[in-house]
Measured scan of single mutants.
Amino acid sequence: MIINNLKLIREKKKISQSELAALLEVSRQTINGIEKNKYNPSLQLALKIAYYLNTPLEDIFQ
């Protein structure tokens, strides 16, 4: 099972779900679904998340 630290990292960087969704060009519901482990992001989306949060991919999804 993948450990998902997206919410923790996003909140630590003081970025809202809506702000991150806008940067990634996805819906806020997509971010919410990823954070609640209801949706697994594509590799492309996971890499974009890591880029915009300036955090290694391995720290977000373990």
Rank of each mutant, 00 (worst) to 15 (best):
A46G: 06
F61P: 02
L20N: 00
R10S: 01
L20M: 06
Q62R: 11
N54Y: 05
S27E: 06
P41N: 01
A21G: 05
I15F: 08
Q62P: 15
A22P: 00
M1L: 13
D59T: 09
I3C: 14
K14P: 03
K13N: 11
Y39C: 12
Q17M: 11
T30S: 05
S16M: 05
L8H: 12
E35V: 02
Y51T: 07
I49Q: 00
L45D: 02
M1Q: 12
N54F: 05
Q44L: 11
N4W: 04
Y52W: 09
E25M: 14
Q44S: 13
M1K: 12
V26L: 05
N37S: 12
D59Q: 13
I31K: 01
I9Y: 10
L43E: 08
N4Q: 04
L6P: 00
I9K: 02
R28L: 15
V26G: 02
N37P: 01
E19I: 07
I60Q: 02
N40P: 13
Y52T: 08
K48W: 06
N37K: 11
I49E: 00
N4D: 03
K13Q: 12
N4E: 03
K7I: 05
N32V: 15
D59M: 13
Y52Q: 06
P56A: 08
N40A: 15
L23S: 08
A22E: 11
G33F: 14
A50F: 03
I31P: 00
A46V: 06
L8C: 14
P41R: 02
K36F: 06
N40S: 14
Q17G: 04
I2R: 12
G33Q: 15
N5T: 05
Q62Y: 12
E19F: 09
N54T: 07
I60A: 02
L8Q: 14
N40I: 15
S27T: 11
N4K: 04
N4F: 06
E11P: 01
E25H: 15
A46E: 03
V26W: 03
G33C: 15
K14Y: 07
L8W: 09
L6K: 00
S16R: 06
S27I: 03
Y52M: 10
A22M: 12
D59C: 14
I3V: 12
E19H: 12
A50K: 02
A22C: 11
L8T: 13
I31A: 00
I60D: 01
A22N: 10
E25N: 15
N32W: 11
K7M: 07
D59K: 11
L24M: 06
R10I: 04
T30H: 09
I31H: 01
Y39R: 09
I34P: 01
Y39Q: 09
N5A: 06
K7R: 14
D59H: 10
R10C: 07
T55F: 05
S18M: 13
E35W: 01
L20D: 00
I15Q: 04
L24D: 00
A50W: 04
L6R: 00
I31M: 05
E25R: 15
N37H: 13
R28C: 11
L47Y: 09
Q62H: 11
T30M: 13
Q29Y: 10
L8Y: 12
E58T: 12
R10G: 02
A46F: 05
N32D: 15
K13E: 06
S42D: 09
A46W: 14
D59Y: 10
Q17S: 06
Y39N: 06
E58I: 09
I3R: 14
L53G: 00
E35M: 03
E19T: 12
K36R: 13
L47G: 05
L6C: 05
L20E: 00
L47I: 11
I2T: 12
Y52R: 04
S27A: 06
R28Q: 14
V26S: 01
I2W: 12
I2Q: 10
T30A: 07
L6V: 07
K14M: 10
P56K: 09
Q29A: 15
N37G: 15
K12N: 10
N37M: 13
M1H: 12
R28N: 08
E19A: 14
I2P: 09
K14L: 09
I60E: 02
L45N: 02
S18A: 14
K36D: 13
L57W: 07
L20A: 00
I49Y: 02
K36W: 06
I3F: 11
K36Y: 07
Q29P: 05
I49W: 03
Y52H: 11
Y51D: 06
Q44C: 14
N54E: 13
I3W: 09
E58C: 12
N4C: 08
Y52D: 00
L20W: 02
Q29L: 11
K38R: 13
Y39S: 07
E25L: 12
L53E: 00
D59S: 09
N40R: 15
Y52N: 04
E19M: 12
P41F: 07
Y52P: 00
Y39A: 07
K36L: 13
L24V: 15
M1T: 12
K38L: 15
K12G: 10
K38D: 09
Q29M: 09
I60Y: 02
K7P: 03
K38Y: 14
I2D: 06
K38V: 12
R28D: 08
K38A: 10
K13G: 04
L43H: 13
I60L: 10
L57K: 04
E19W: 07
G33I: 10
N54P: 02
N4I: 07
I31T: 01
K14A: 09
